[in-house]
């Protein structure tokens, strides 16, 4: 239930969810301590998948084992699923309306800006030395201009990490 509430109110992606999670599981329910929470976040960032899902699964496991993680993950995913389903049906119903067209025309360039802004704010803490800049420039070039597959690019980046660090 807690995670359903968290999922329902975290606008703007997984990171927006973290303060809410902290409040609920540490302060309201005292399921874990703050330092356990920080460990969980570190692992959630280092494993594939959305941070919110990862931390929910992990927290659920700590609190109530496999059943706990199933419940908390479902709790995070369900609100998304329900809201997005409604939005999809709504958009689909009015897809021939010029208003829907106009709305999308207005938000497409905003989306480009939003994604770029997300990358930039991550980048501010990521580019700490020369190898990290080199890796980023190389990968941008091969993915944007040479049609290199992003999944392979991540594997290459991991290998470069071992070489450089």
């Amino acid at each position: 239930m807690s995670f359903f509430k968290i999922g329902a109110f975290s606008f703007g992606g997984g990171y927006a969810m973290l303060p809410l999670i902290e409040e609920e599981v540490i302060h309201v329910h005292s399921w874990i301590t703050t330092s356990e929470y920080i460990d969980i976040l570190a692992i959630a960032e280092m494993t594939p998948g959305p941070i919110a899902i990862n931390s929910a699964t992990f927290l659920g496991y700590k609190v109530a084992g496999v059943l706990g993680s199933t419940v908390s993950t479902l709790g995070v995913v369900l609100p998304s699923f329900i809201v997005m389903s409604m939005i999809f049906h709504f958009v689909f119903k009015f897809k021939n309306s010029p208003y829907v067209d106009w709305i999308f025309m207005g938000i497409r360039p905003v989306v480009l800006g939003l994604i770029a802004a997300a990358a930039i704010s991550v980048g501010r803490t990521t580019f700490v030395d020369i190898p990290s800049v080199l890796i980023a420039v190389l990968l941008f070039y091969i993915v944007a201009f040479k049609k290199f597959n992003p999944i392979l690019a991540i594997v290459v980046a991991g290998a470069l990490g071992i070489v450089f660090y």
């Binding site: 280092m46 994604i115 770029a116 997300a118 990358a119 991550v122 980048g123 990521t126 580019f127 190898p131 990290s132 800049v133 890796i135 980023a136 420039v137 190389l138 990968l139 941008f140 993915v143 944007a144 992003p150 690019a153 991540i154 290459v156 980046a157 991991g158 290998a159 470069l160 990490g161 071992i162 450089f164 660090y165």
Partner: peptide, 16 residues
């Protein structure tokens, strides 16, 4: 080490 490589790559991939 692997993550030191992946972190800047993510930024590059998103920008790409």
């Amino acid at each position: 080490k692997v993550f030191s490589g992946i972190r800047p790559a993510i930024v590059a991939l998103i920008l790409a």
